[in-house]
């Protein structure tokens, strides 16, 4: 009898969790889709976003993400490669770097917002701009991206490493031609984590990229991201809920789309390099 009760309890909590998720998702999908239209995607917002669309906001979101990825991908790969292949695995120095990266992972996003505001916007004089926001996000996603790529690189079959070096290939060539392509799945995972975090981020952007909802003319302009837009619509604009839900739907779709692109992009890069794993 008691055994049955326990089983029941386990199933009940699992169902409860599933039900809550479905509740949130279905609300976002139903309410979001009902307000969504082609013009919503293509128009400028009007009446504080109650009507009109989100075109400039989509552009700003993508620009901010582009800046963040443009900075964090090369830097992140460089650090990951250094940690996995250019330094002794157990060196004190590398461990200190790992420790600081792990600590950075835990820093709350609002604190990145404070830092980005003080450093990029004011100290470096970049102001409230897409660049400030993108750089702030780059700092935020770098640690996770590095650690994911590093663990992927370390997991690559060591026989390949030894084989390549025994052929007189340089470390650099070994990493570039063999290890990085072989670690591609981990790099994709890191990229997806980074894109997910950056696209979803709100708190770090309010005081760095700002909330101007006009079409940005350059990356030095302030630009409102989708997540900030959703926040603004639901908190500061009465009657903005419909547009907020539609934006939320677009945001989730955007994250899924970007992940697919990341996957496809890396696959394309792999083509002609790696035949099989």
């Amino acid at each position: 009898m008691k055994e049955r009760g326990f089983t029941l309890l386990i199933w009940a909590s699992a169902l409860l969790v599933a039900a809550m998720l479905l509740w949130v998702l279905s609300d976002v999908f139903i309410k979001g889709l009902s307000h969504l239209s082609w013009s919503f995607l293509m128009d400028e917002p009007s009446d504080s976003g109650r009507s009109g669309g989100i075109a400039p906001i989509l552009i700003s979101t993508l620009l901010i993400l582009l800046v963040a990825l443009f900075v964090s991908i090369p830097l992140g790969l460089a650090v990951a490669v250094w940690l996995s292949d250019f330094t002794e695995q157990r060196s004190e120095f590398a461990n200190i770097i790992r420790l600081t990266l792990d600590a950075l992972t835990g820093v709350p996003s609002i604190v990145y917002g404070l830092f980005g505001n003080a450093f990029f916007s004011i100290f470096l004089g970049l102001g409230f701009s897409i660049v400030s926001g993108g750089l702030t996000l780059a700092c935020m996603i770098l640690p996770v991206f590095i650690r994911t790529c590093e663990s992927g690189l370390s997991a690559v079959n060591n026989d390949w490493r030894k084989g390549a070096l025994a052929l007189g290939l340089s470390r650099s060539a070994t990493v570039w031609h063999i290890l990085l392509p072989a670690a591609a799945p981990a790099i994709v995972t890191g990229l997806i984590l980074g894109i997910g975090r950056a696209t979803a981020e709100t708190a770090a952007l309010i005081f760095t990229s700002g909330y101007v909802d006009r079409m940005p003319e350059s990356v030095m302009d302030s630009g409102r991201s989708l997540a900030v837009h959703i926040y603004d619509l639901s908190m500061n604009v009465t009657g903005g809920d419909d547009a907020a839900y539609a934006s939320a739907f677009v945001l989730i779709t955007l994250i899924i789309l970007l992940n697919t692109f990341a996957q496809a992009g890396v696959n394309r890069w792999l083509k002609g390099r790696l035949v099989a794993l």
């Binding site: 830097l75 460089a78 250094w82 250019f86 770097i97 600081t100 770098l142």
Partner: peptide, 18 residues
Amino acid sequence: LMSIAVLCGLILLLVLSF
């Protein structure tokens, strides 16, 4: 690569010091 790694490690210091 090492300089980049040090740079990235310094972000924490930069965040805290700011």
